[in-house]
Design a protein around this nucleic acid. Structure first.
Lengths: 361, 361
DNA sequence: TTGTATGCGTTATCAT
DNA sequence: ATGATAACGCATACAA
């Protein structure tokens, strides 16, 4: 059958459009017929083939515009044997971070033919890897972005390579080859933050570390330890308490730390949410921040600036990292030059607010 | 050509698998040949056709399992002339809400063949509608979810209907037919919250309203007014200040309200973030919360429980609403019964914490 | 109950 | 420079 299914028809040697109100979208066939060329020529126009007569190109483009023709992504994907989907796989680190990543990713993906499909998973579930494998095998995304903490899972990265799926891992330290990674320098950032406390005169500085097994937790703890060592302050194990990155664990950890005597005059918390827990405990104990207790957090989430007093914290350039990751994933494919897409290491900065002061000030 | 491209080949009357390491995925053809049936029969198995010999079904299923065969979604979409994509369109209300929605949506979509593709837009941009139209015409998603505040845009809803795209709007009040809507009862919820303040003895209650033109802002303001009226308290225009749902605007609004004399003894803020701004201003002025100033917020974002004192606020069941929305969108198509999918009205609840007390207590 | 032929909208091959 | 024809992987109409 040579006549388009619904969109138009030949009438007396002339192609006549149907009423478009309910008709399905125009296809490449409709364009071809109206322009009086073959499908392949239209395809060439769409894909910006260089060898093409300027006149025919213009004519075809005109018809495309008139019809409002849009190529069908599914058909394209089938013919090209590759699609234009970027997957975002994460296990709910924190809302602000996930959203910042989505924003950064989409800034690059916008104006390309790529779409972002989000796929949260449940770390902890033993079936997680199988679940991700099914997702990858089914959708065969063009590439995927892995967020911490599951980005630290080397087995997962191996799975991607096995399946031939492009991937970029986001993390607190370089944990893969540059093309497959965007990393912040958590260790150095924390070293600077704790150094800031030391400069302010603090010597008894508590650490609320992240959960065991998290790369970010390890890096940040190392940063803390390096800062103390550099200042010649001995590291006391009792001044290090682990939390799970959640508010309540921050409260528990603060309680443990503040039970010491002499008590610490400052606390570095490995993220803002736990730092907020420290604020609570300080208030319950009648300790004024920052006069009697200085606090620094990590992440610069909204809570850091909304809490009282505003929290000094470490900000890492999440959106920037996400943009870089997107460029690594679709850089060539989308024509967007990877001018700065080669960057894979990003510096975090200390945001100084009101939660730090000299001890006993 | 009758022989599979890469996956296996006929050898001496027997179908032999190739080395799978680098081969592309098995297709329906491979399954058909290995099982000794036609493609159509395999297709019937996949789509759970009722008229099918149990033996052949089992045999085919076995082969499918052995091969790890997964139907290609793009090919399916092309043949079925409909895909399995659900779009989430929003203009970044707040991170927690977007993420909660995603979570609720995906809870339903999990185990179905649907995937979620997120598409933030820029309200304010005059090209927004055209941008969304392009997205819809290109991807032709099976359905889309619209988040406030753009969900309130009737032109957008009309666009969906014009394009024949299923949609569900999420909002602060019923703004569409039940099948196309999930709504919370903001007005009633705020009435209750402000009623709570009145019961505690407050008579001078300030309102920080949301931005003009937002349905949620209007509903919440109505709730405030209804509560005052019910208690016979005259509504003073000077006790109502508009913000833009952001922290800083909450501070500005609080400054305006607290400049009054006599000053209000309580403030209802139309969201938590602005309420946090009120906390800041109160602290700057040396006003203790809740003794000298009671505060209630809206949303129950993490900040509400992390701030000091913990904020009394209104929690609306976002994830539940998102689940209901997902059921409305894919209910029949996914086989998931719409047992409670018919619900389109959801009740919010007042979460009582420590930011409310009797005036002057 | 199962198979054959054909279509979905696009791109690739190989002509011309 | 352009076109005819055959994929791509799956589903439907119609036979058998």
């Amino acid at each position: 059958m040579l006549v388009s299914r619904t969109f138009g028809e030949w009438d007396n040697g002339r192609y006549v459009l149907m009423d478009m109100s309910k008709a399905s979208q125009p296809t490449i066939n409709d364009v071809a017929r109206l322009a009086g060329v073959s499908k392949k020529t239209v395809s060439r126009v769409i894909n910006a083939s260089p060898l093409l007569n300027q006149d025919t190109r213009k004519r075809v483009e005109q018809v495309i515009a008139e019809l409002g023709y849009i190529p069908n992504p599914q058909a394209r994907a089938l013919a090209l044997r590759r699609n234009f989907l970027i997957g975002l796989i994460h296990d709910n680190p924190n809302a602000q971070m996930v959203l910042n990543v989505q924003q950064g990713l989409l800034e690059v993906l916008r104006d390309t033919e790529f779409e972002l499909i989000v796929h949260p998973v449940d770390r902890g579930s033993p079936a997680m890897l199988e679940e991700i494998r099914r997702f990858l095998e089914r959708q065969r995304p063009y590439g995927i972005m892995l967020l911490p903490p599951i980005s630290e899972n080397d087995t997962l990265a191996a799975l991607c390579r096995e399946l031939g799926v492009r991937y970029v891992r986001m993390g607190s330290a370089p944990l893969d080859e540059p093309p497959n990674m965007v990393a912040s320098n958590d260790r150095e950032a924390v070293r600077g933050a704790v150094g800031h406390l030391i400069e302010a005169g603090h010597r008894r500085i508590g650490l609320i570390a992240g959960p065991h097994g998290f790369r970010s937790a390890i890096e940040r703890q190392h940063g803390y330890e390096e800062a103390l060592e550099a200042a010649g302050i001995p590291i006391q194990r009792t001044m290090i308490v682990h939390g799970d990155y959640r508010f309540e664990s921050g409260m528990r950890a603060a309680d443990r730390l503040l039970d010491h005597s002499p008590r610490p005059t400052a606390v570095f918390s490995s993220n803002d949410e736990m730092a907020a827990g420290v604020f609570h405990v300080a208030r319950q104990r009648g300790l004024s921040v920052p006069q009697e207790l200085s606090i620094i957090g990590f992440d610069d989430t909204p809570i850091a600036s909304h809490i009282w007093p505003p929290l000094t914290t470490v900000r890492w350039p999440i959106a920037t990292m996400a943009r870089a990751a997107a460029l690594k994933l679709v850089g060539e494919a989308s024509g967007k030059g990877s001018s700065d897409g080669d960057a894979s290491l990003f510096v975090s900065t200390l945001i100084r607010r009101a939660s730090v002061a000299a001890p006993g000030s």
